[in-house]
């Protein structure tokens, strides 16, 4: 055999090994969390609050809390993100404006999540005096997912053929009518994909809500947007670092990790499936 063919064999073997190792590690995580977590899951676990000093009962307040925080984050980020995407693609501002916006969106996307937490603490919790609350946490998470919503919406809007817009304008519709009646409805699937991905992101983030929203234990359920909340990701952290009976708590944490992981993976699987389908349609 030629020397170059031997090196090809070795090279291909090494990169195959890399892929196998990657899949193995990720598979190990899925396996352990699923197999050990499933023992915790029961109807009670999903619907009852914790009891017996965090060693028994369910985690329903944490599930509900994560739900509230995520909805709040989307309600805040979606209008802003969509407006930004519409402005960039439909109103095509000057080049320099586009450039500045793009740089700040990209850099916002790269800010570490714990820094968002610091910002939320200083601005929402202290300055606006919202306290440690659903509102503060939602706003903080909203800023975190904003860049993702903007780029997904932008991708969806630019995929709409120019001819659709021109047809609408030629019929005498104004720019705003064209956006509302033509562009937005046809780009809706793409925008929704971005929203679904962002829900998964917001639900799994822990660092931004440690100082702004989450508590390890609270009595009953939150009463208003100014209440503190329990949240699934923070609950996992709390169970592992606080409390007095590590063994029982670890088992509950397995259950929480499984719920959170399953939920986030399901959302991103749905979103990526739809994105794949849309891209295929666009590229013929």
């Amino acid at each position: 055999m030629k020397k170059s063919n031997i090196s090809q064999k070795i090279g291909f073997f090494v990169i195959s090994l890399c892929l196998i190792a990657t899949l193995f590690f990720l598979g190990t995580i899925l396996y352990f969390i699923t197999v050990r977590g499933i023992r915790s899951i029961s109807w009670e676990f999903l619907t009852k609050p914790p009891s017996g000093g965090m060693t028994e009962g369910g985690v329903s307040p944490a599930i509900l809390g994560t739900f509230y925080l995520t909805i709040g984050a989307i309600l805040f980020a979606l209008p802003l993100g969509l407006a930004c995407a519409i402005y960039l693609t439909e109103y095509t501002p000057k080049n320099i404006v586009v450039k500045i916006l793009r740089i700040s969106i990209n850099n916002l996307a790269g800010v570490p999540s714990v820094v968002f937490g610091l910002f939320g603490l200083a601005v929402f919790v202290k300055f606006f005096n919202f306290g440690v609350s659903i509102l503060s946490g939602s706003l903080t998470l909203g800023i975190l997912i904003l860049p993702g919503i903007i780029s997904a919406s932008q991708e969806a809007l630019t995929a709409i053929p120019q001819s659709l817009r021109e047809a609408s304008l030629a019929l005498g519709a104004s720019k705003w009518q064209t956006i509302r009646k033509i562009v937005l409805p046809s780009s809706m699937p793409g925008i929704l994909t971005g929203v679904i991905l962002s829900i998964g992101r917001a639900a799994g983030e822990t660092a931004p809500i440690i100082f702004t929203a989450a508590v390890f234990y609270m009595h009953g359920y939150p009463k208003s947007i100014f209440s503190e909340v329990m949240a699934l990701p923070y609950h996992i952290y709390g169970l592992m670092t606080e409390g007095t009976s590590p063994e029982k708590q670890t088992q509950i944490a397995y259950g929480c990790a499984l719920i959170l992981m399953f939920f986030v993976l399901l959302l991103s699987a749905i979103a990526i499936y739809f994105r794949q389908k849309q891209r295929r349609v666009q590229h013929g």
Partner: peptide
């Protein structure tokens, strides 16, 4: 897509896995 989906596993789940 499988790799992209796995990229979305929350960091707290990795932390938990690392610990236990």
């Amino acid at each position: 897509p499988l790799i992209e989906i796995l990229a979305s596993i929350p960091s707290v789940v990795y932390g938990f896995f690392g610990m236990v």
